[in-house]
Computed example of a mutant assay.
Amino acid sequence: MKYRAAVAGATGYAGGELLRLLLAHPNIEVGAVTAARSAGSLLGEHHPHLVPLADRVVEPTDAEHLAGHDIVFLALPHGASGEIAARLGPDVLVVDCAADHRLADPAKWQHYYHSDHAGTWPYGLPELPGQRDRLAHTKRISVPGCNPTASTLALLPAVTAGLISCDDVVVVLATAPSGAGKKLATTYLASEIMGSATPYQVGGIHRHTPEMEQNLIACGAADPHVSFTPMLVPMTRGILATCTARLSDPSITADDVYAAYQKAYATEAFVHLLPAGVWPQTQATLGANIAHIQATVDPHTGRLVAIAAIDNLAKGTAGAAVQCTNLALGLDETTGLTTIGVAP
């Protein structure tokens, strides 16, 4: 069966990655491509690598141009999805790649995003306990943030197996500037980024912090507290998340941890546990809907150390959107997705 999909925000990085993946999907054909300021231009002006769609005219992002599709992907700035989604019918599968529908607590949304909460949709991280059942045949999907995806997958087996206490979780995460979208800002100029690593939103103010804690609760943590420090690094795509937490029992060994991760991820198509002693690299995940994971114990401090690498635009956004769309449509979860990275 073929489904017709529209992509709103098609000229941005996430929109472009969505279109790249959809062009390879055997069950989905690309319908309208829309944007705001770039409406009226040709898609090839923004994404010359998308040769089959280069001559498509970018339409305005409104309910009229998004109507008539089986699926609508929203790759819009935070705060813009709610209004558009509310005007789409209940029979349309709407997949929101922004943050508008991720948080369950309206108060936390208002605290971190400073606007009205648009509501909560099924959360698009299938690897969470019980989440595939919630995503199956749903008509609304909220795609996770790229940083929470990496940190959650790094910590999930340790939480579900009861190996760590989540009252003191520390996440230090290196991320590429493409995660911030295509907006023009001095911070993201090549002359500012090249040869430099820069922390930002330090001190618990990053908007992905409550999402990380929400995910740990979904894994079984009672009252998690996450200290999250992101760093902007000079690479185009990728995330490397280093996560640490206190062990629940000082007798837990690195072998215990590795065995728990093997058990948790044995059947996961899009999570790859590396051989013991081999650590994730962002270059290995480039263009792939895959997370590379490794974990061990620091016996000196009695802490777990877990590291995850993902492509922020693939498993971190567009790949996750397609993965969840497959579940909602009743397709094989892996349809149209690859775990094979591009190197060098």
Rank of each mutant, 00 (worst) to 15 (best):
L173F: 04
T175P: 02
T175A: 09
A176I: 01
P177N: 08
P177F: 08
P177G: 02
S178Q: 10
G179W: 00
G179V: 01
A180C: 10
A180W: 10
G181W: 08
K182P: 11
K183S: 06
L184F: 11
T186K: 01
T187L: 07
T187N: 10
Y188L: 13
Y188Q: 06
A190S: 15
S191T: 06
S191E: 13
S191V: 12
I193S: 03
I193T: 13
I193E: 03
M194N: 11
M194D: 12
M194L: 13
M194F: 14
M194P: 00
G195S: 10
S196D: 15
T198D: 07
T198H: 13
P199T: 15
Y200P: 08
V202T: 08
V202K: 01
V202E: 04
G203M: 01
G203R: 06
G204K: 13
G204D: 05
H206K: 04
H206W: 01
H206Q: 07
H206N: 09
H206F: 07
R207I: 05
H208D: 15
T209H: 05
T209W: 01
T209K: 14
T209N: 11
P210E: 14
E211G: 01
M212C: 12
E213I: 10
Q214I: 10
Q214D: 11
N215L: 07
N215G: 05
L216W: 09
I217N: 10
I217D: 12
A218F: 00
C219S: 07
C219E: 12
C219L: 04
G220H: 10
A221V: 09
A221K: 05
A221P: 01
A221T: 06
A222P: 00
A222R: 12
D223E: 12
D223M: 09
P224T: 09
P224I: 09
H225E: 14
V226Y: 00
V226A: 01
V226E: 00
V226G: 00
V226P: 03
F228H: 03
T229L: 02
T229H: 00
T229R: 01
T229M: 01
T229V: 11
M231P: 00
V233N: 02
V233C: 04
M235T: 13
M235L: 10
T236N: 12
T236L: 13
R237G: 01
G238D: 06
L240S: 02
L240G: 00
L240E: 02
A241N: 06
C243M: 04
C243I: 08
T244L: 04
T244H: 03
T244C: 05
T244K: 00
A245V: 12
R246K: 12
R246I: 09
L247M: 03
L247V: 02
L247H: 02
S248C: 04
S248T: 13
P250D: 10
P250W: 09
P250T: 11
P250H: 10
S251W: 06
S251V: 13
I252D: 04
I252M: 06
I252E: 03
T253E: 12
T253M: 04
A254N: 04
D255A: 12
D255P: 09
